[in-house]
Amino acid sequence: MGDAILSAENRLMVHVGDFAELEEGKLKLVRAAHARLLVVRIGDGVRALSAMCTHARIFLAPGHLTPQGLIECPMHGALFSPEDGAVRCAPATKPLTVHEVRLVGGGVYVDPGPEPEAAPDASTKPGARPSAAQWGNWG
């Protein structure tokens, strides 16, 4: 272990694998601290994106990009660009969050991002209650 690598937002970046392991066009699902991220090699660079589909809150699957080079959600078929997380096809309307990546000594380091307000498993903490935001305009 060398010195801690800090992200632009001053968070500890997490080693999630080595660049040499990454295949062009192939998505890898990784855990970085509290975050689950999709990591994909594009040419000499690496992108890391939030692995949670912004539509129906399902984890995106590891595997290959579509023939068009996009990330496809296995549940409803939303498409996202691996370059910047932008939505390329409904039903998603919000982009995937892009996480900072650094390549240091052949290793891939990613910024896990801020702790989410409500983790997917927040509902399983005894006594936990849903937030008003989760209910949107219902009712």
Partner: peptide
């Protein structure tokens, strides 16, 4: 999708 359930699919996971 019609809006007759709350938007967050985890909103009903509590309890």
């Amino acid at each position: 999708e019609l809006g007759l359930l709350p938007p967050d699919p985890m909103s009903l996971a509590f309890g």
